[in-house]
Design a binder for these strands. Structure first.
Lengths: 148, 148
DNA sequence: TGTGATTTAATTGTATGCAATTTAATTTGC
DNA sequence: GCAAATTAAATTGCATACAATTAAATCACA
């Protein structure tokens, strides 16, 4: 391919992924509206439902988001009483997040969200989803490694 | 899969795509720094390099971004004199964007960007890229259709 | 043991995204 | 012809993302 052709929007791989990610977030919005969550808040709660207790540092690492993004978001979830915060006695730097009962209760309401998304995505089979996930993860890993 | 399992981060398809998109934008950042462009500004310029002249409405549609995002961004590119704006004589609502000479000159500098990204993505073959693109586009289209 | 380096969060500043609203121009129906 | 509906951008308000900086706590080690 000529260098100029590589600058055509139609020859991009990154743009479709970027567009798909935005469409995913848009598709989640109506499903999450009932829960009063945004997509980013939802994936944080997803971790909180699974782990009940987690250090902010590990949450940042799991979601690949930094404290600049998560600090204010955690404050909002705390003010909604979906989680609580405390510092480790043994190390005052470490912030521990804990899922509240109210936070766990929200999980029941969230059970319908994956169903709604599966419908919106119109995937033909579990294999199709797993294969796409594998390919995306491979690219994601390569990008992550090349960034140091 | 049990409903609860569908709420595990590790069982998500959407999260990896969302994470990949963010890593893509992060990987572009150092390559675009020399050009003084962000990723979103870069894809706008990509269209401007190809089309020279385009209505804002069509640009919104091509990039799947709305005027709330593009209006301020276009203002910035205009203030950098990479493009110019004028309204249609025949219809004062329509904003037409035109690539300036300075905007076209930036294209030369941008020729190395796709090379840098190809390197960061470590793709094994053109086929691998095309296949991923096709699968992502299929999901993207399904989401778009289910949104109306 | 004291101090410089390191680690963890929070904060700051800039740039998106996008829903909802507003503004201005045009088109439609009658 | 003209009021109502429609269309295209711009604006507003809110929620991320993220680089860079700051602040606080701990660690390393001479």
């Amino acid at each position: 391919m000529r260098p100029e052709e590589r600058l055509l929007l139609s020859n991009q791989l990154c743009f479709p992924i970027y567009r798909c990610a935005r469409r995913i977030i848009r598709a989640y919005a109506p499903l999450l509206r009932d829960l009063g969550l945004t997509y980013t808040q939802y994936i944080v709660m997803m971790v909180m439902w699974e782990r009940h207790e987690i250090e902010e540092k590990e949450l940042c690492s799991l979601l690949d988001l930094d404290s600049g993004t998560l600090s204010p978001l955690i404050r909002k979830l705390e003010s909604r009483k979906l989680l609580s915060k405390h510092r480790l006695d043994s190390d005052g730097r470490v912030l521990v997040l804990e899922t509240t009962d109210e936070g766990m209760a929200l999980r029941k309401q969230a059970l319908s969200v994956p169903v709604g998304m599966a419908c919106a995505m119109k995937l033909e089979s579990m294999d199709e989803a797993l294969d796409l996930k594998r390919r995306v993860d491979k690219l994601s890993k390569a990008l992550s490694e090349s960034m140091g």
